[in-house]
Structure formats: C-alpha cells, structure tokens
C-alpha cells in the first residue's frame, strides 16, 4: 500500500515537471527570478520535501535487518 502511494505521488510529481503553461512566460518573480526558473527551483524543494516524507513514512527498514543477516553465499 505504502509503495503504491509513493509510486503514484512520484508520477504526479513527474507530470508536474512539464510546466507547459509557463513555456512562453518571461515575467520575473520577486523582481529578478524568471518564472520558469522559479517554478523549477520550487520544484526541487518540493522534490526534497517529497523524499523527506518518503524517508519518514515509507523507509524500507526491513532491508537493514536483511543486510545484516549472515548470507548463505558470498560473492563467487
């Protein structure tokens, strides 16, 4: 369930990358930042926020335990 939510949220985030509505917009945000650049700078922050939520809510803790167990076979 958690994995499905993460995948769907990731796909929505990926779709939001395509900001076609700002394609021709030359306006400046805060008086200096072109709106297309401002959008994608904010997008990077949202991506970081997304991965922070994933790390809090859907971190694969079990894998740590599995990695620490003795493997029955080493690199051959």
């Amino acid at each position: 369930m958690k994995a499905t939510v993460v995948i769907v949220a990731f796909l929505i985030l990926a779709a939001l990358h395509q900001d076609f509505w700002l394609w021709e917009d030359k306006s400046l945000v805060f008086g200096f930042l072109p709106v297309g650049l401002a959008y994608h700078a904010a997008y990077s922050l949202v991506a970081a926020l997304f991965w922070w939520l994933v790390s809090k809510l859907a971190w694969p803790f079990k894998i740590e335990q599995w990695a620490d167990e003795e493997g029955d076979d080493s690199a051959s």
Binding site: L13, D19, G36, H40, Y43, P60, I63, W66, D68
Partner: peptide
C-alpha cells in the same frame, strides 16, 4: 528544468529504489 530539476527528482529516486537495495545485497554477500 531540463537537467537540474529532473536530476533532483530522478537521482534521489534511483538512490532510494536501487541504491539502498544494492547496498543491502552488497553488504550481505
């Protein structure tokens, strides 16, 4: 948008989805 914001999203996705699992396999074996 072309290079940086895509990389921010996708690199982290690869670290999370592939990197951690390969770390685990590497450590175990």
């Amino acid at each position: 948008g072309l290079m940086a914001s895509w990389s921010g999203l996708i690199h982290s996705a690869v670290f999370f989805a592939v990197g951690i699992r390969l770390w685990a396999v590497g450590k175990r074996y």
